[in-house]
């Protein structure tokens, strides 16, 4: 792979049922590229958690995945309410999700911690009232 490959998706914030479509597409594309199953799983789980977050907290957003020679970059951008306290949001078990979201199987306060767990690097830029951009990297080489 000499050139980088980019995938772009608009994540629909109104439809919980279709959430995860972008991650499923990325997973399929990475498989076609012949990447290792562990790497594919890391990328797709991290992106899936991010995609769910965008749907349940931010009314949707955009996802861009770029495959470089040595790493995969996942950028998730939304114009939602922003994260007030990142340290708190990074704690396992802390969530601001509603009971409705919980009844759908999410909002256990594991989303952001899982995204960090499955990636080699994660950066959060957020502004209350403006939105959040999360960049994650998974290394392809040791």
């Amino acid at each position: 792979m000499n050139e980088s490959l980019t995938f772009h998706f608009d994540v629909d914030g109104t439809d919980f049922t279709s959430a995860g479509q972008a991650s499923a597409n990325v997973k399929r594309s990475l498989r076609q590229l012949g990447l290792a199953p562990d790497i594919i799983r890391q990328v797709s789980i991290a992106m899936y958690e991010g995609e769910i977050n965008m749907v349940i907290h931010a009314g949707g957003g955009e996802a861009d995945v770029t495959v470089f020679e040595d790493k995969i970059e996942i950028v998730l951008k939304d114009h939602g309410p922003g994260i007030k306290d990142i340290d708190l949001a990074m704690q396992e078990g802390y969530s601001t999700a509603t009971d409705t979201v919980r009844s759908l199987g999410f909002g256990a306060g594991m989303g952001l911690p899982n995204m960090k767990r499955y990636t080699d690097e994660m950066h959060i830029e957020t502004e209350v009232g403006k939105g959040t951009t999360i960049k994650m990297y998974v290394n392809l080489t040791d």
Partner: peptide, 15 residues
């Protein structure tokens, strides 16, 4: 015991 599309998505992401 949860029934919605995200159960299948989750299983898919986890292989």
């Amino acid at each position: 015991g949860l029934v919605n599309s995200q159960v299948v998505r989750t299983a898919e992401m986890m292989d």
